[in-house]
């Protein structure tokens, strides 16, 4: 493998709320090669969208602290000035398709007007030329060129999602963060968008971070998978390892709850609830729901006390397979 395009090194992001500090992301590290797609998966509230916000440096005002390092092409981009990040990285190198982005289009501007804004600001191109580029990009995402003159309400959900993708790509970024890019769409439209994302990845040599709660959908794009639980990364490895032999009891549980249409499989679920991120459990955050902790006496006093380290397990895929669980020590 070559040099990593993106290295996320032990980042923490805490929100301050009236009830206390919410440790939304609590020490997460992973990396990404150029051209690789990483699926960041987990249930709602696990911190996966918060990581996206940290990467694009757009977080809410009640964020009390962001620490750690995010290196893009070897350079730390978390601690450079806002101005420098805005001019050099956001949209230009790191783009973002936010959750429910099809509803984030401005209803009083035409598609063209909102698409060319970054071109005019970042590249200082004149309006007509920018409009041509916008039309080229719309064509690339499978929309007719004359969409530039339409308003968002004239488009269907799937078309708006394509526009949001075109907007993210217009400055030719290297890394695109896709946050649940198909969540409100119908299944057939969703499949079409997944095909589009595959094609764009080939055409523009893109690197994706694909954030989703849907493991089946993640397998449509992912070269590697990082599984999050309650603000922590619990497992990370190649898709070929994570889907075939998941190791962390949480990943195993999550896989067990994914319905399959073709094969025969009995669905299982994990009893209990996701813990509070204000007062997370000590040790492994999954131990209160873990079937191994419940059944094996020797784990008492370990999992509920000490945080498990990342352990290298045997892997077949291109990446190391890391799992944060005492079972493998």
């Amino acid at each position: 493998m070559g040099m990593a395009l993106l290295e996320v090194d032990n980042i923490h992001l805490y929100y301050s709320t009236s009830k206390g500090i919410v440790k939304a992301v609590d020490g997460v590290s992973f990396e990404l090669e150029e051209g690789e797609t990483l699926a960041l998966v987990g249930e709602s509230g696990c911190g996966k969208s918060t990581i996206a916000k940290a990467l694009i440096r757009l977080w809410e005002r009640n964020v009390s602290s962001v620490t750690g390092e995010i290196r893009f092409e070897g350079r730390d981009v978390l601690h450079i000035s806002d101005e420098e990040f805005r001019m050099q990285y956001r949209w230009k190198k790191i783009a973002w398709v936010p959750q429910a982005s099809m509803n984030s289009l401005n209803p009083v501007l035409t598609i063209g007007e909102q698409m060319i804004e970054p071109l005019v600001i970042h590249h200082d191109v004149d309006k007509d030329k920018a409009l041509m580029q916008a039309m080229d990009m719309l064509e690339a995402v499978g929309l007719p060129r004359d969409i530039v003159r339409r308003y968002p309400h004239q488009l269907s959900g799937g078309m708006k999602q394509r526009v949001a993708i075109a907007m993210a790509l217009i400055l030719m970024p290297k890394l695109v963060i896709l946050d649940e890019p198909t969540s409100a769409l119908d299944v057939i439209t969703q499949a079409n968008i997944m095909n589009l994302l595959k094609r764009l990845r080939r055409e523009f040599k893109l690197t994706y971070i694909f954030i989703t709660h849907d493991l089946a959908l993640a397998s449509e794009l992912a070269d590697s998978v990082a599984v999050m639980y309650a603000g922590k990364l619990v497992e990370w490895g190649s898709s070929d390892d994570i889907y075939v032999s998941p190791k962390h009891p949480y990943t195993v549980g999550l896989m067990g709850s994914v319905p399959t249409l073709r094969g025969e499989k009995k669905l299982t679920f994990m009893p209990g609830e996701v813990p509070s991120l204000i007062n997370p459990p000590t040790g492994c955050r999954f131990y209160p729901r873990c079937p191994y902790f419940a059944s094996r006496g020797e784990l008492k006093g370990l999992c509920d006390r000490d945080e498990p380290p990342y352990i290298d397990v045997e892997h077949k895929g291109a990446r190391r397979h890391l799992v944060s669980c005492w079972l493998y020590k």
């Binding site: 299944v187 499949a191 595959k198 089946a216 959908l217 898709s239 889907y243 075939v244 896989m255 994914v258």
Partner: peptide, 13 residues
């Protein structure tokens, strides 16, 4: 509809 729905399988990509 059936074709559109993926099963979790790393070769889908």
């Amino acid at each position: 509809l059936i074709e559109a729905i993926p099963d979790p399988d790393p070769s889908n990509r």
